[in-house]
Design a protein around this nucleic acid. Structure first.
Lengths: 324, 324
DNA sequence: TTGAAAGCGCTAACAT
DNA sequence: ATGTTAGCGCTTTCAA
């Protein structure tokens, strides 16, 4: 009991006793058992972040933001990688509920995530959606403006004179992919360019599938082939570029390319295209802040929906060729 | 009690009772409290990974390996980012001990990590060192062969005819940096090239400082300036390249560059230099495996030391120019 | 200023 | 096949 007081309310222990206890703590390497404390208080000072792809720099930056906030608030972060799999995600959430984390930040893997999130909701476990909104669930969400972003990117290409513009996209099971498709179509409409379903490829937010998708576009007969591509995220962009290189095509002479999300490291080395950079780190800090508020007040309050603007970074607007 | 039996040893419960309990579990959304269970058993089925830079793809790949193994063994992974700060690292370890994690994987931030690790050792908490060895501590370690790697990279440049070769390195507080320096010196010796301290820059495993270090090298009078650079890791390499671009120098015409660690995304886009790729993911799986063995047997056994070979990937051996 | 009792939720060991 | 008891380590409450 006295030890507990020394660690929690040292001022309520006689200085002499305190000294002796502190001495013993050092000698024994005593560290209070947070499990016992958590069991008692129903609070673990732990939150979790589940991302859909830990290898994507976007999510790593986001994690950094989350970590900063967490550390500042005395929280620990458990990270989960769902790998875009709803099942893996469900297992994680299950385990995390077991561990009685105080709250969850999650970039849902797909529409199947709904069930998992309802589980949390029923238990009154606060959570905040990041990057991907799920309609039909009332929860805080921090995301980018995918519709506007895709519209701007597409418009950029149109203004450069392109008419046959392809979109290599993620799975339509992911909200951002649907929104980016919508933004792309909106831009086409605004400039009276007919939408050609053949040019809008549903792939997935991964390098390999995007490469395949792009190769298919390149296999089209010349008159139906696109002259420009909007890559729906950074990994897709890399797949697209790989396909182009395999086909011995240059950027932008043979094919213009723009992409959603920054490719930070890569563009530090070789700035080569126009990207729409999202403030990933801020996604993390804001979402964590929201979560902590929910945890502290354990108050419902209306669900907040923050849509952060992106920045069109003309790294070097279609101004360099890829092949040397 | 019966509920506990249903979740843990269902075969020892009458089918009828089991059914009813399972029904209730579903209805109530009951998830057993792992805190209570952990408190009882002194086991949390949680391990932690502390890396020195979560933004470095090397560590992200490593994390992936760890996660795979963890999931396969029914463990959860807590991730910590020490940001190369011994103090931040110490705070993390303290918090993790409190949470009674079963084991720790750590890429120590520096020599100051020794104290922190001793804390773990005194408490008999198993841990495995990753990527960075700490002499004077007896523990499993999984790492790459930095000495040989740096030697090979340096030799590669020597064979291309270079004699004034610079090394832009991490802080000598980090073991790998010291080892890479040693490998670099060994290669020079083998070819009877005198070691010039001016050309071996101690910076840090970060982009900014490396850029500064490279700029300093470029500021040397022409006859003392290097004609080639070994970048001691991927982030340093990027800093080096940035400095070269600022100085309007081309790779490899004006300055040859090779680097330790792969730059995966970047080189997918634009393979441009020779890199020494480490099997980061295997670092993770092997280290996790070691840790689980320690946890399960809770047996001491001799400390294992695994040194994984790297692969010299001639992405495009100094064969493309950077500036267009 | 310090100590004793009780209980957080679970399960090993021992009844029934 | 099911129930009871006890205790993991902590802290809230009440007592000394």
């Amino acid at each position: 009991m006295t030890v507990s007081r020394v660690t929690n309310t040292p001022e309520r222990v006689a200085p002499a006793t305190r000294q002796r206890v502190e001495q013993a703590i050092l000698e024994l390497g005593y560290v209070p058992n947070a499990l016992a404390s958590g069991l008692l208080h129903g609070r673990t000072r732990t939150i979790a972040l589940i991302v859909s792809d830990i290898n994507n720099p976007f999510f790593t930056m986001l994690l950094r933001g989350v970590e900063d906030m967490a550390q500042r608030n005395g929280y620990t972060v458990i990270i989960g990688n769902s790998d875009e799999s709803v099942e893996k995600e469900r297992q994680y959430v299950q385990a995390l509920i077991g561990k009685r984390i105080d709250g969850l930040l999650i970039a849902p893997a797909g529409s199947g995530s709904l069930e998992t999130l309802k589980l949390l909701q029923r238990r009154n476990n606060p959570f905040v959606l990041i990057d991907r909104e799920i309609e039909s669930i009332q929860a805080d969400v921090v995301m980018g403006d995918s519709v506007e972003g895709a519209r701007v990117l597409t418009e950029h290409l149109i203004k450069l004179g392109h008419r046959r513009i392809a979109l290599v996209n993620g799975s339509y099971d992911v909200p951002t992919a649907r929104q980016r498709l919508a933004g792309y179509r909106r831009a086409l409409e605004e400039y009276d360019i007919p939408f050609d379903p053949e040019l809008a490829k549903e792939c997935s937010y991964r390098r390999g599938p995007a490469q395949v998708g792009m190769a298919e576009l390149l296999a089209l007969p010349a008159e139906r082939r696109p002259t420009a591509v909007v890559a729906s995220n950074n990994l897709i962009c890399i797949g697209v570029i790989e396909a182009l290189r395999q086909a011995q095509l240059r950027i932008p002479e043979d094919m213009a390319v723009v992409c959603f999300d920054d490719i930070e490291l890569a563009s530090a080395i070789d700035p080569f295209l126009t990207v729409l950079a999202q403030p990933a780190r801020r996604f993390g800090t804001i979402a964590a802040q929201f979560l902590f508020e929910r945890i502290d007040r354990s108050a419902p309050g209306p669900a907040r929906r923050v849509v952060l603007p992106s920045e069109l970074l003309v790294r070097r607007s279609c101004g360099s060729s890829l092949l040397r």
